[in-house]
Amino acid sequence: MNTQTTIAGVTLKNPVMTASGTFGSGMEYSEYLDLNRLGAVVTKGVSNVPWPGNPTPRVAEVYGGMLNAIGLQNPGLDVFRKRDLPFLEQFDTKVIVNVCGKTVEDYVAVVEQLGEETSVAMLEINVSCPNVKEGAIAFGQKTEALYGITREIKRYAKQPVIMKLSPNVTDIGEMAKAAEAAGADAVSLINTITGMKIDIHRRRFALANRTGGLSGPAIKPVAVRMVYQAAQAVKIPVIGMGGIATGEDAVEFLLAGASAVSVGAMNFVDPLTTIKVIEGIEAYMEQYHIENLSDLIGAVEG
């Protein structure tokens, strides 16, 4: 059985990755699972300088999911390169660094410096975080803005560029096309869906930021639909995510057209979710006598 999948010339041993922001820099979860088993580790968003993030409460539970408004807290690129990247280099998995910024120049600064790091297989550009005021989603909700930043990043990037798309748009196909037209090597989706929770007993917002990003199994049908629409719209690979908890969930995304998948909020529910998803995909392939994982990609019929 061959579970390999290739994205922009980078071959992953299996299609299962970690969704940015749910897996720290990998270090936190390395005590709970063997990182060597993962197709790739996608890091928490990294910016050119340290970001303190939002006030607390930053997380809230909702039916079948959660809201978060972390605000992209991260230690900055220097600490990432000195501490987190060398840690990840010990493992036989691909490293995908998620990049965030407030301005185009911020993004470019990170992308340029990461160009010197040969252990970074790909870059994922976060233009879809709903929880920060500047940057991020400002680039991810209009086709012209997305095209512009993608184009600029591609001028400097040494590694393949994945644009991470927001679901908080009218037409996801148009957004994917804009990224492709600007030279993106792949797109990943969905980031979280903007939501809100109100504590009716205290008559207060559950999150200090008032709004937050919804993730978890509650969003999976929305994510499968958007991955399908994006995969129909572009020729570049699509990485699918949104509420994946099992191998069956992952297969749904593959059939919808994803070349790889990420596990996000469910890492919090069980640190072994990624491993269970990998084993679930293998069990599915065995059950249906599928030799190559690539035969599943976009294979939905009817």
Binding site: E28, Y29, E31, R58, Q73, F268
Partner: peptide
């Protein structure tokens, strides 16, 4: 105490 998600230091939900 603070609202937490992962409990293992990954999500950065529960900071002070």
């Amino acid at each position: 105490e603070e609202r937490m998600a992962c409990g293992v230091g990954a999500c950065l939900g529960c900071v002070v």
